[in-house]
């Protein structure tokens, strides 16, 4: 289905919110706004009415590039058979402490 974008429609933005200091920004949803300033103000009203955030990022949706789910198998294949990347792969004697 092709998106029929009318000229009058404000651009779409993706909203990312840091819920509290020290945490990552996490995708919250999207909204329409004329520019980045309005997008941040709208994001505050739409996504943080209950103090859900201490910081907001907005990115115009057209700038988001995403991996293709149809290619997930081949894309993640190189990581699949490398269990030696996990600490549990290694058998150490019980006497070894703090490792």
């Amino acid at each position: 289905m092709e998106k029929e974008m009318k000229k009058s429609e404000w651009p779409l933005w993706e909203v990312f919110i840091r819920s509290k200091a020290g945490l990552d920004h996490k995708h919250a949803g999207s909204l329409h706004a004329a520019d980045e300033q309005m997008a941040i103000e709208n994001a505050r009203d739409v996504y943080t009415r209950r103090m859900e955030g201490v910081s907001i990022w907005v990115v115009e949706s057209k700038y988001i590039h995403a991996s293709d789910p149809g290619e997930a198998d081949s894309l993640y294949d190189p990581a699949n058979d490398k269990i030696y990347r996990h600490p549990t792969f290694y058998n150490l004697p019980d006497e070894v402490k703090y490792m």
């Binding site: 289905m1 998106k3 029929e4 974008m5 009318k6 429609e9 949803g29 739409v46």
Partner: peptide, 14 residues
């Protein structure tokens, strides 16, 4: 929230 969820299916807000 719901309009933007619907938009991910390929329909515009307008």
């Amino acid at each position: 929230y719901l309009y933007s969820a619907a938009e991910t299916l390929g329909i515009s807000r307008d």
